[in-house]
Design a binder for these strands. Structure first.
Length: 227
DNA sequence: GCGACAG
DNA sequence: ATCTTGTCGC
């Protein structure tokens, strides 16, 4: 699929912050019309090698309603940026974009293992990569980066607003009774409402969305087998 | 200066 | 993220 080039990746942390502030203005929180006929959903994830600088990135595409895998691509590369809270996309996006570039067909939406706009500068991994792909994207993180929230109901589907600097930037969603909730936030071209519905829709028997679990399994398998 | 801090 | 076995519970 086509990848819109917005800037290179050879940057330092200071420059990365400037880039996020510029990208923030380009993010759309409106539902893309293409979400109406939502059919294929993709998810991307990254895995690292221990004392090495090798990393793997993968994207898995599934189709509703059964969510069977229709395509999957992966790439192997080297770490070029350190892990700094708030700058995760500069570490993981490059390898993920390589995998996305190999997709034959662009998915209708993409899920990311990280934050969308629930970020210090409103531009987390989900938003950053969503902008490059110019596709509806959603951030679904396992823990909090920024924002505050009240208690979350115990039933599946219960949620609390994630508020940051006086704005609702996401939801803390219980995707399964009895398990820790996930942090959902719009990436690009999706509303907070739709982002939350999309995550709940793709969560079946586990805490995380099925596409994300599949991408997670794929990169970990690649790392174990050292391919 | 101190505490927080996606993966 | 990664290092790691068993184990408590539905």
């Amino acid at each position: 699929m086509e990848i819109r080039s917005l800037h290179g990746w050879d940057v330092n942390p200071s420059r990365a912050v400037e880039i996020q502030e510029l990208l923030r203005e380009k993010i759309s929180l409106k539902d893309s019309s293409s979400l109406g006929k939502l059919r294929s959903i993709a998810a991307a994830d990254v895995s690292y090698n221990k004392g090495d600088t090798t990393l793997y990135g993968a994207v898995v595409v599934v189709e509703l309603p059964e969510m069977e895998i229709v395509e999957q691509r992966w790439a192997k590369g080297k770490v070029t940026f350190p892990y700094i809270p708030g700058l995760l996309s500069f570490r993981e996006a490059p390898i993920l974009l390589k995998a996305f570039a190999m997709l034959r067909r662009a998915p209708d939406a993409v899920l990311f293992d990280g934050q969308g706009i629930a970020h210090p500068r409103g531009c987390g991994l989900g938003s950053h990569v969503g902008l490059f792909l110019d596709l509806p994207s959603v951030g679904c993180a396992k823990s909090r980066l920024v924002g505050e929230h009240g208690p979350v109901g115990e039933d599946r589907g219960s949620y609390a607003w994630l508020v940051y600097r006086g704005k609702r930037v996401g939801t803390v969603l219980r995707t399964r009774a009895g398990v820790k909730p996930v942090f959902v936030s719009p990436g690009h071209r999706v509303s907070l409402r739709s982002a939350t519905k999309l995550v709940l829709l793709t969560c079946r028997r586990y805490r995380l969305p099925e596409p994300i679990r599949l991408a997670h399994q794929l990169v970990n398998r690649l790392r174990r087998e050292g391919r």
